[in-house]
């Protein structure tokens, strides 16, 4: 019984962490159709931002929840102004540019911090469930995942800003005709997407050893989750995170992490064969 509880916690944690690492990409790719291959590096930068500020004596929660998204958001803004804004609608060029960007960011971070593993420890200890131990920090990640999804949902669904953003994504010309500047909306959206990635990177930093190449760990999982989720940013991310998180975690438990990843990739292939437009291309179609 205790074991089942531990497993359920692990599954929920896997879902939440998938949702967290995909949220920023879901906004940037799902809404703007910008294939950001530097997404993993945004997460990595968030991690470094958090670690550096903790080392500088900042409270760890401030570092993770405020500094990391702020820093990466600003970096995202600069990148959007310097690179991405010229490439909207040119998918292949964007891929190439962001791929180069990811190499550049990895290189810069390597120059500054060296090619070594850094990290901070988790601020929350473990707790016992019967005779088993579970990580308290995993609970925090679940709460953070829920909060992030809830905020994106609320902003998109209920605020005027969300409405304009969704409108501009659907038809830039129409939005422009109604007096909104699509370029500015894109800029803000990309910046927020980057900030979300930074937040996720910051929150996940205490769990892993961070290296300048850590971004590679996240980028494929994030893409698979977002593409399988389909057009609806929130519902898509949540549903595909739930599917893949449960599947990988249970497979890992029954066999090894290798099979966990295999199961995820296999499921993604089957899913996209059956539902080429992702989960929300077929189900929950009218959702955000």
């Amino acid at each position: 019984m205790d074991f089942v509880a531990v497993i359920i916690l692990e599954v929920l944690y896997a879902i939440a962490s998938l949702a967290l690492i995909s949220a920023g990409l879901a906004v940037v790719f799902g809404m703007m159709r910008v294939i950001n291959l530097a997404h993993g590096e945004f997460l990595m930068l968030g991690g470094y931002a958090a670690i550096v500020s903790v080392r500088a004596g900042l409270n760890i929660y401030v570092a993770m929840l405020v500094v990391a998204p702020l820093v990466v958001g600003i970096i995202g803004l600069i990148i959007e102004r310097c690179v991405i804004q010229f490439l909207y609608g040119r998918m292949l060029d964007t891929m190439l540019a962001t791929w180069g960007l990811s190499l550049l960011l990895t290189g810069v971070v390597t120059m500054i911090f060296g090619n070594t593993t850094t990290g901070i420890s988790t601020p929350i200890g473990g707790f016992a469930i019967g005779s088993y131990q579970a990580s308290g920090y995993n609970i925090f990640i679940m709460l953070a995942g829920i909060a992030v999804i809830a905020v994106i949902f609320t902003v998109l669904k209920t605020t005027r800003l969300g409405l304009i953003a969704r409108g501009a994504m659907q038809s830039a010309d129409m939005a422009s005709g109604l007096g909104h500047n699509p370029k500015r909306i894109y800029m803000v959206t990309f910046t927020l997407g980057a900030a979300l990635s930074g937040l996720a990177g910051g929150i996940l930093a205490p769990l892993t050893g961070l290296t300048p190449t850590s971004g590679g760990l996240y980028v494929s999982k994030a893409f698979i989750t977002v593409i399988s989720g389909g057009a609806a940013v929130v519902t898509g991310t949540v549903s595909s995170s739930a599917l893949f998180g449960t599947l990988t975690q249970l497979t890992m438990l029954l066999s090894t992490p290798v099979w966990g990843d295999v199961a995820m990739l296999f499921a993604a292939i089957v899913l996209l064969r059956l539902l080429p437009r992702g989960i929300t291309g077929r189900f929950f179609r009218r959702q955000v």
Binding site: Y13, S17, Q133, S214, L217, L253
Partner: peptide, 20 residues
Amino acid sequence: TDFFPLDVADFGATIAKIQS
């Protein structure tokens, strides 16, 4: 004995397995 590819960074399931 469990083997992990060099890029695995999430050991939650493994830790649960070890406990059991």
